[in-house]
Design a protein around this nucleic acid. Structure first.
Length: 818
RNA sequence: GCCGGAGUGGCGGAACGGCAGACGCGGUGGACUCAAAAUCCAUUGCCCCUUGGGGCGUGAGGGUUCGAAUCCCUCCUCCGGCACCA
């Protein structure tokens, strides 16, 4: 018997499989489709670490198993190739981003092949290829045509370090998603996608998705639906003008307690609200507020309330009371009306502001009818209304409804639903992205350029600048063009699209990646989509995953596709941490690469260890001793298979044969069930247990040779998706039929093999185990009970007394209560 | 603060309300070896009694149940996300 020589085995099969086109997407019309997709990777310069394997190996196992089960499987791979780091590298080294991208994708692909992922490389796509981004631009125009892309000048999230505008999603928490730097505000004209038109659908369609609860809940929070009312206050300015001041509130029941109003520093009519004698102070406050980073404005430690009186008073339409209007940065621009009524008795923030500026606090809601007083802070709970005129005595819920109805009748307000999600700023002041296909003409305004692709020009330097001007602006020959509408000289838009635009439709492209005249073949899309299984990291919860859902809904509305949700099932893999328990990073020097592990233990051991380490979704610490253990297991598998009896004659020992069949059936059942439910770690444990069992009976194998051989064949078949090389090698060494184990059908097992003739049962007295009995598997409860009571230890514990109660759980235990 | 998730041996982790700790790592003892590595065998939750047992054990405390790691309540800790959204 020779040793398990993984290098020779892996080299041999890698080459043979390539010639066999083993992983081509299935096209047999009689088979059902299964679309298994990994998140679109951004090919970074660092290459893959073993952490990436935690994403790619499980989908690889599922797709291989589905193929063995007879599905046509689509498991593609491509590159989300546009993006900043590539461009930064290009700026630093002068190498063209295209070349950097090529280098990085080659590394990724080589490493993916090293671990033998079963991608159909004939469908590889690259989002920075004009044949691809042509269609990204096409969808930009689709959104434009449907009124969902627009330009606006406003204060944008701006990352000074990356010198780029960020979407709200990319700047969550006031930090840039790429560099973790603090975000500031910059007033710029930008392109937006009107994702807010889809708020309600993005929210309600989540219900039917099989996604992790955490991701769904993050999206729900992000969309942030709240029901309330919009109420128009009236402001009398110093010049005697009347201007409206609309506020949004979810607590209309507290409006009789409003003692002041607050507008955001960015409030559009702030100057109209400000009296001349307060103007200087207000302007000063606004400019100071603007200089603070968002992070500062939001930071818990910085939440000391600041603000300035505008000099104006607003009239509360419910009680005619005149209350002062302040400007303060605790009211945010872009949500609701950017103006609030402040009820210090029933809102913490308003309370803090009122205390600081010595403003009135009027209590109007009494939880349980008991006024809580206003000395120790605000009372947020619902209750019965007091000091609220004709609404006194109503409970908060009813009051909100009645008061909204009252406002509607009187014409100064209405019930209103608001969402926190903002429109998606999609333009980027960068070179390495898909150009926005618009032309700006003095006469016609922005005009779509339908002559796609609008290709990236060659430029001297990719360096962005602090002004937010794109490097494309310097490519004058390219910028200066003619208006597609009137033919006069006009200028191209010099922004590119955020990379999340490219990844908002790539899953459609994979269905027909070489389609020339349209983004996809609708028949192919209808066959393959929506995606059956989507796997990637949780960090895209409110970025990619919300944008892709949005684009899908737009395409659905446009009649391009027949489904509303792109990804039916989503799973998030956990991270692999370095052996020091820290996140793997070059700077910490704790990165483990697949290359070194494949070199030392082989691709099969690496794959199997990644599956076995722990639960799929858990963060786990890498351990070289762990992979060594799995490698030893493969050695045991190798030796047990090499000893497999040659001649499949009759079984001489029916009892061993039956035992083997039982263990096999249990193993097949567990592996099948566990892989389906993403419990790869326990599936591997089941395989180990089976090999351990065979190993313990290896001396006798020839007495049940036929069954034994069959068991080895099935074992190799279900292990093949996890460890493709060793199983293939053993398959051929043992002379099993067919060109490759990987096309062998997934084995079935019989229910009768799962059952045993006799079962061991535990006998408890008052819940404590006191004895074990062996009974016929089909024994009646009465028989089991008799056997339990007959046991000498039980009899001695009972000491002749009659048991009070006996609980029998057939096949498991007997519990006796004396 | 709000939302989501998790607390089980020395470690990673298993356990349809029914034998807690599967499987693996690590440890210990042994075999093979001149020796070591590799491999194989045995053992390994803690405590007590020499055997056979007995007791205690799933973050803490209560509850439901014949029976709870699992269900319910209260609390603590940790991880992830959001956080002045009116």
């Amino acid at each position: 018997m020779n040793r398990y020589d993984f290098r020779a085995i892996e080299d041999r099969w890698r080459a043979r499989w390539r010639k066999m086109d083993l992983y081509l997407t299935g096209t047999d019309p009689d088979r059902d489709p299964f679309y298994c997709l990994d998140f679109f990777p951004y090919p970074s310069g660092a290459g893959l670490s073993v952490g990436h394997c935690k994403n790619y190996v499980p989908t690889d196992v599922i797709s291989r198993k589905k193929r063995q089960e007879g599905y046509n499987v689509l498991h593609p791979m491509g590159w989300d190739a546009f993006g900043q780091p590539t461009e930064e590298y290009a700026i630093k080294t002068g190498v063209h981003p295209r070349e950097v991208t090529g280098r990085n994708t080659r590394t990724y692909k080589r490493q993916m092949k090293l671990i033998e992922t079963d991608y159909d490389w004939s469908r590889e796509i690259d989002s920075s290829d004009p044949d691809y981004y042509k269609w990204t631009q096409y969808f930009f125009l689709l959104l434009y045509d449907r009124g969902l892309a627009y330009q606006d000048t406003s204060y944008q999230m701006w990352c000074p370090r990356c010198r780029i505008v960020l979407s709200n999603e990319e700047a969550a928490g006031g930090l840039c998603w790429r560099c973790d730097g603090e975000v500031t505000r910059k007033r710029m004209k930008q392109w937006f996608f009107k994702i807010t038109d889809y708020s309600e659908r993005l929210l309600s369609d989540l219900d039917d998705l099989d996604w992790p609860d955490s991701i769904k809940s993050m999206q729900r929070n992000w969309i942030g639906k709240s029901k309330g009312a919009e109420i128009d206050f009236t402001v009398h300015t110093a010049s005697g003008e009347e201007i409206p001041l609309s506020v949004f509130t979810t607590r209309l029941d507290t409006i009789f307690g409003a003692t002041f109003c607050v507008v955001a520093p960015e409030y559009s009519r702030l100057s109209d609200l400000t009296t001349p004698e307060r103007a200087e102070e207000v302007e000063d406050y606004v400019s100071r507020a603007r200089k603070r980073s968002d992070r500062d404005r939001l930071a818990v430690s910085e939440r000391e309330k600041t603000g300035v009186f505008t000099g104006s008073y607003a009239i509360n339409p419910y009680n005619g009371r005149e209350i002062p209007v302040f400007v303060a940065d605790y009211v945010l621009e872009g949500y609701g009306t950017s103006a609030i009524m402040a009820v210090p008795a029933h809102d913490d923030r308003d309370y803090a502001f009122a205390k600081k500026f010595d403003l009135d606090v009027v209590e109007v809601v009494a939880p349980g009818g008991e006024p809580q007083g206003v000395e120790d802070g605000a009372t947020m709970a619902d209750g019965l209304l007091i000091n609220s005129g004709s609404f006194d005595g109503l409970d908060s819920q009813t009051a909100r409804e009645r008061m909204a109805e009252h406002a509607r009748r009187e014409g100064f307000g209405r019930a209103e639903v608001r969402y926190r999600i903002r429109d998606w700023v999609v333009s980027r002041q960068r070179y390495w992205g898909a150009p926005i296909p618009m032309v700006h003409c003095d006469r016609c305004g922005p005009v779509p350029d339908r002559d796609l692709p609008v290709e990236l020009p060659e430029v001297e330097s990719y360096q962005p600048d602090e002004t937010g001007r794109s490097p494309l602006a310097r490519a004058e020959d390219w910028v200066e063009t003619t208006c597609p509408s009137c033919g006069e000289p006009a200028l191209r838009d010099t922004n590119t699209m955020a990379c999340f635009a490219c990844s908002s439709w790539y899953f459609l492209r994979f269905a027909s990646p070489h389609e020339k005249d349209r983004p996809f073949d609708p028949r192919a899309v209808e066959y393959w989509l929506p995606v059956d299984l989507y796997v990637g990291g949780a960090e895209h919860a409110v970025m990619h995953l919300i944008y892709a859902r949005f684009w899908t809904k737009v395409m659905y509305d446009a009649g391009l596709i027949g489904f509303r949700e792109p990804f039916l099932v989503l799973r998030n893999q956990g991270m692999i941490l370095g052996e020091d328990g820290q996140k793997m990073s070059k700077s910490k020097g704790n990165v483990v690469t697949p290359d070194e592990m494949v070199e030392r233990y082989g691709a099969d051991a690496l794959r199997l260890y990644v599956l076995f380490m722990g639960p799929f979704e858990a963060d786990l610490v890498w351990s070289e001793e762990g992979i060594a253990g799995v490698y030893r297991f493969l050695g045991r598998l190798w030796s047990i298979c090499c000893e497999c009896p040659e001649d499949p004659g009759d079984d001489k020992s029916p009892s061993l044969a039956s035992e083997v069949r039982h263990h096999l059936a249990t193993t097949l059942m567990r592996v099948t069930r566990d892989v389906e439910s993403f419990k790869f770690n326990t599936a591997v444990a089941a395989l180990m247990e089976f090999v351990n069992f065979l190993s313990s009976r290896r001396e006798e194998s020839s007495t049940a040779a036929s069954t034994w051989r069959g068991a080895i064949r099935d074992l190799l078949t279900v292990m093949a998706p996890m460890t493709p090389f060793i199983t293939e090698e053993l398959w051929h060494r043992l002379g099993f039929s067919g060109e490759t184990v990987h096309r062998h059908p997934w084995p079935e097992w019989s229910e009768s093999d799962l059952k045993r003739d006799t079962v061991e049962m535990v006998v408890q007295v008052r819940g404590r185990i006191r004895a074990r009995i062996t009974v016929d598997a089909d024994a009646s409860e009465e028989e089991i009970k008799r056997a339990a009571l007959r046991h000498e230890r039980i009899a001695s514990i009972l000491d002749g007394k009659e048991p009070g109660r006996v609980i029998v759980v057939p096949g498991s235990l007997v519990n006796i209560i004396p």
